[in-house]
Computed example of a mutant assay.
Amino acid sequence: MPHMTRRLFVLSLPAFAAGCVSSAQTTSIKPERPPVPAYYQQMYAAVPGEPYPVAAADLSKIDPQFYRQEVDYFTTEPIGTIVVDTQARFLYLVGQNGRALRYGIGVGKAGLAFEGVARVQYKREWPRWTPTQDMIAREPERYGPLAGGMEPGPTNPLGPRALYLFQNGVDTLYRIHGTTEDWSIGQAVSSGCIRLLNQDIIDLHGRVPNGTRVVVLQAPVSPVA
């Protein structure tokens, strides 16, 4: 079976990355889809027991291919690796026997997207978010008041969980995190970070330990079923 290839290089744009915020939503008229199966309605229902509300995802705004599901995925990466295919808008958690758990993602805009190999240095539940100095310099009125950071909560851009990506022991300022902007899954909208539905980042956060290998690809390389 074909091996997945990848193009890797050291990050050169970390100053833009930690923003994790979106540009304006692009709207378009889409044909009606069949009702969402009960299985996925339950998967993306409101999450109880959290310190802040986690609302049900609005699945009417998301292409069904981006719902969390197990798929065939053939790769030379070891089991437990996170592989992010930015072109296809999928994140894979590599499993056994040529299978992977696949999540739909939103990715960074052209020129700000992460590419390379990193590690999950640490994970956070309901993390704080702080705009970068570059963001503050570009939009002081918007980000200046947040220079000291934003407290956790339902409006925090990082959502209920975040995985912090380091490369060679250095913080890349890129995160894998949640979002309440359901419409952004499958799109290239953020300032560089990799975003999942809140239910999906909670699920992923619980499956991967600190030190997990993360491979972020830009070339279209996904040999999946």
Score class of each variant (00 low, 15 high):
Met1Arg: 03
Leu8Tyr: 14
Val10Asn: 13
Leu11Asp: 15
Ser12Cys: 05
Leu13Ile: 09
Pro14Glu: 14
Ala15Lys: 11
Val21Phe: 09
Gln25Met: 01
Thr26Met: 12
Thr26Glu: 15
Ser28Asn: 07
Ile29Gln: 10
Pro31Leu: 14
Ala38Leu: 10
Gln41Glu: 13
Ala56His: 09
Ala57Asp: 15
Ser60Phe: 07
Gln65Trp: 12
Arg68Met: 15
Gln69Leu: 04
Glu70Arg: 07
Asp72Ile: 11
Thr76Lys: 08
Thr76Val: 05
Ile79His: 08
Gly80Asp: 15
Thr81Phe: 00
Val83Phe: 01
Gln87Lys: 03
Gln87Gly: 06
Ala88Leu: 04
Arg89Ser: 08
Val94Pro: 00
Val94Ala: 04
Asn97Tyr: 02
Arg99Gln: 07
Leu101His: 08
Gly106Asp: 14
Lys109Gly: 02
Ala110Thr: 12
Val117Met: 06
Trp126Phe: 09
Arg128Ala: 13
Arg128His: 06
Trp129Ser: 07
Gln133His: 03
Met135Leu: 10
Pro140Leu: 13
Ala147Ile: 05
Gly149Ser: 06
Gly149Phe: 03
Thr155Tyr: 04
Tyr164Arg: 00
Tyr164Met: 02
Leu165Gly: 07
Gln167Leu: 01
Asp171Thr: 01
Leu173Asn: 11
His177Tyr: 02
Gly186Ile: 00
Gln187Phe: 02
Ala188Gly: 11
Ser190Trp: 00
Gly192Arg: 01
Ile194Tyr: 00
Arg195Lys: 09
Leu196Thr: 09
Asn198Asp: 15
Ile201Leu: 07
Ile201Phe: 06
Arg207Asn: 06
Asn210Glu: 15
Gly211Val: 13
Thr212Cys: 04
Val216Ile: 13
Ala219Leu: 10
Pro220His: 12
Pro223Lys: 12
Pro223Tyr: 14
Ala225Thr: 12
